[in-house]
Design a protein around this nucleic acid. Structure first.
Lengths: 202, 202, 202, 202
DNA sequence: TATGAATGAGCATTCATTCAT
DNA sequence: GATGAATGAATGCTCATTCAT
């Protein structure tokens, strides 16, 4: 059936979308454990059985939601990279460092609660851990490429450096956005930028 | 009840101890959610009712277990600080940086799974978040004091610097110990030490 | 607690009894699969949770119910064995054969539907198969003893003979009681008695 | 549709075949209850809807599968009956008895798990009970005919005798093939043969 | 203080069957 | 005839907490 790829699964695709949206909403607002399959179905306007026709189980939905989120993040980043302003002078040195931090801040604002959930679950659930680690690596690779192209680095082991920098930035941005650190965010961001800059560049 | 003079410890205190030990063991081995009050009682050799006589609920036990763990950690650190060798030359510069990282590595080996559990829960549970943040701050204060005493710093905002450094170290050590990062631990530790050192010292 | 064995678990024992009775009733009337834990709890006048406090799962209840049934059966049989009339002359030959068949008929009347359920489940469930086989063996041992004491047998392999005889009797009585065989029960019983008698005795 | 003359079989018939084969396979391998209509459809390479176009429901398929199995069994038996060797001397006396037992053993090897399933279901499901009973009767009739032609019987009520013999043989063979009786199969078969022989023949 | 039976809402998932296309 | 998405009741079982003894 379906002579052309377009018309494939007319209803099915729409249902899947509804479930994905309901899932994103609920996982973020109530957390993974507090989101029952019944709630998902109700929020998506379908039956429980239908949910399980489209996703093997709750976790598969979680990962699908996360993957969609991650794609959105990458689009955001790629768009920024092509920004003329950025190309102007922010591809290395202090400019790059600030860009990294700002992007991370922006990404965290995109769907902060989903992010929090995934961070919690990665310590608890193998599958989540694997998927999140993959994504981290993908970003690290991207940074390695940018650093290599930027020239004049102070570090030898660029791969380790990229990984360490991203882990630190991620952790600190996360703390700023999600908890209320006892020190003002701006001071932390300033210190962070300083630390990363001195590390990477002469 | 006390047949011999040995049993100076009031019975209540002894029961509490048993519960704390059972809790530490179970939370670490099976995780917080998988540890039911029934299991705790059985492992402690008491009844469920008795457990609830000593702790308001499961979370109170978790926090008590965590506090005990944290005390042990501090004792370890303080012991190290009084170590002659350390006093010799590791109170500033590269020596201090390495000391921080090593201490963190050691602490993570003390009770890695309990640590993992707390890390997961801090993103999910307000009370856990608060208690863990307090502890983080306590360590940060300690570092601020040491940095101030060590002289010749490159940073202005010592408080923010201490916080940023500890967050980074904690995160990276955690990743090394708990997951399997795609880059060898030694390379990450080396990069981390380099980053922190360049940041703090001229 | 409980200084004497009598007073042990006052409430608990009663609850257990209620569950056992509800289980016996429901498994017989509705079948094992159609009997939900909710139904059992309601019929026993307790909560679902309480049911699971007393039995690990539904199957454990089934086996407990079966064991009680089996004990009742054995009491019936033992009572019959001490019957003066029986002792009179029914311990061997035609008398014994008829006694076996009659006992089996009587036992099948004791709780026919439970019996049917167990028979169905033994083909499907390992645990049930094991327990029912044990019971079968216990009865076979008893018959072996009686045959050995009765003297003048025509068979060499008494154990195999006992097993084969009981299996046949059981099967045919079962068919008579539970389905409606196309031949009148009396004719089948007569043929069965004849077969067994000719087999065992000269 | 039929591009070549080969495809004489109407499509409907072919689909039905695929379903029957998938059903036989699955019911045997996984059991009736564990076989969902979805699985059947997938194994048959068709859609769920299509399955319900060909069979009213799952049970109808089960019975159809069983009927096919039974036909195969009868072909096997009839083939054996026309075997010269058999005609030679195994149509009565010890020869016949052994033939009955061997045939039953062979039949049980043909599709042992399907057999087990039907045996379990006949105690639980009216329709299955009826169909299996019909088949039993058909075999009994066949035996009655053979016994009558063999002459020199010791029994008066040939019909009841045939029924009783088949029930016993069936039960014991079943136990040997499906469970692990506590007595070696050969001893049981020997006892069984002895019992049946003494019963039927002078 | 200690005990452990009782509670009951809650959860993830399955499955036979229907029916619009 | 064929398709496969949709349905939703039903199931076995868990668990933190309470409270009468």
């Amino acid at each position: 059936m379906t002579k052309d790829g377009q018309t494939r699964q007319p209803r099915a695709e729409r249902t899947r979308r509804q479930i994905l949206e309901a899932g994103a909403e609920l996982f973020s607002r109530e957390g993974y454990h507090a989101t029952s399959s019944k709630k998902i179905a109700r929020a998506a306007g379908i039956s429980v059985g239908s949910f399980y026709n489209h996703f093997r189980d709750k976790k598969e939905l979680l990962l699908a939601v996360y993957r969609e989120h991650v794609e959105k993040v990458h689009e955001t980043i790629l768009a920024a990279l092509q920004d003329a302003d950025f190309a102007g002078g922010r591809r290395k040195g202090r400019g790059l460092v600030e860009e990294i931090i700002n992007q991370t801040l922006r990404v965290h604002s995109l769907s902060p609660e989903l992010h929090r959930q995934m961070t919690a679950l990665r310590y608890t659930d193998e599958d989540v851990a694997r998927v999140v680690a993959q994504e981290d690596q993908r970003v690290a690779d991207m940074l390695v490429r940018m650093l290599s192209e930027g020239g004049a680095l102070r570090v030898d082991d660029v791969e380790a450096a990229a990984w360490v920098v991203l882990a630190s930035v991620e952790q600190i941005v996360h703390a700023i956005k999600m908890s209320e650190p006892p020190i003002a965010g701006e001071r932390l961001v300033a210190a962070l930028a300083e630390m990363v800059h001195r590390f990477l560049y002469p």
